[in-house]
Design a protein around this nucleic acid. Structure first.
Lengths: 147, 147
DNA sequence: AATAAATACTTGCCTATAGCAAGTATTTAT
DNA sequence: ATAAATACTTGCTATAGGCAAGTATTTATT
């Protein structure tokens, strides 16, 4: 068991570097990782609320409030006050914000393409399968027969 | 290709959360992730230098200098000036520092044990194999036949 | 040997990131 | 009508981390 844990920790160190490489272009951009994650959530879920983002990315709500305010002043995000509930604003990317996000997004994809480009089609598909199996194992719910 | 990249990005989001869970106890401790990474490198490589740590964990050397100074005042690290080269100090954990590091280390291991505890022996070994294959694929050097 | 260049580290200064707690506005429950 | 809950904001603060200049020492150049 200890041996297995150590191997996983070794992989985690390895994979932390991979993720670092992939995120590097964001750190070199004008935006922070948190800002891009917020853009990501808004892009993939238009009319999301600050509260929902907070829950998804687990960030301090004070910090998030200021972060969104900044994105609004940068003309990246629009806040649209709900008619039903005046406490809430729905968030969406502006046209400009969408451009900026999609550009960053493309560069994330490019960074990954870079990493897997030298693999042939079969290897790439094997990789995806491996990832999928890991995700399944790690999200598998416990059962009585575990040992 | 795009599809494959998207799947990898999905895995990366998933795995970023896993790593976050594993690191959570450190964020709840008295020490920062960087401090613990530094302790980790010193523990695994006694008489390492600041320069070497900088290269391994890619951190600003000014920040690192102060970080090490803090660990020294906390009686976690000792600096031992090299006799040959007076610019250099070799770093080692104090007895106290080793205790603190090993405790944090154990808790990292515990967090991982937690995640895989409900898997049976066979599944755990499968997991390790999957990790290993991924690491091999991702570190594989490119070749002409790639496609 | 004297001077220049490189290396290892330190320090000063500054900004971004993020956390906590109290506060405001609005809605929902009692 | 009042209290409690929700959604968000604001004030205050601490920490993380970056950049550039500075110090001490060693190595290379002439």
């Amino acid at each position: 068991m200890e041996n297995i844990v150590n191997k996983i920790r070794g992989f985690n160190r390895f994979y932390t570097r991979i993720i670092g490489v992939v995120n590097n272009h964001i750190l070199e951009s004008r935006y922070s990782l948190s800002e891009v994650r917020v853009m990501y959530e808004i892009y993939h879920n238009p009319k999301i609320t600050a509260r929902q983002i907070k829950e998804i990315i687990q960030v301090d709500e004070g910090y998030l409030s200021r972060l969104i305010k900044k994105l609004v002043t940068l003309n990246i995000v629009n806040k649209i006050k709900s008619q039903d509930d005046h406490r809430i604003s729905y968030l969406k990317l502006t046209e400009n914000g969408e451009k900026i996000f999609l550009n960053l997004n493309q560069r994330s994809s490019d960074a990954i393409s870079e990493i897997i480009q030298h693999l042939n089609k079969g290897e790439q598909e094997e990789l995806i399968l491996l990832y999928k199996k890991i995700e399944i194992l790690l999200t598998k719910k416990g059962n009585q027969n575990a040992d």
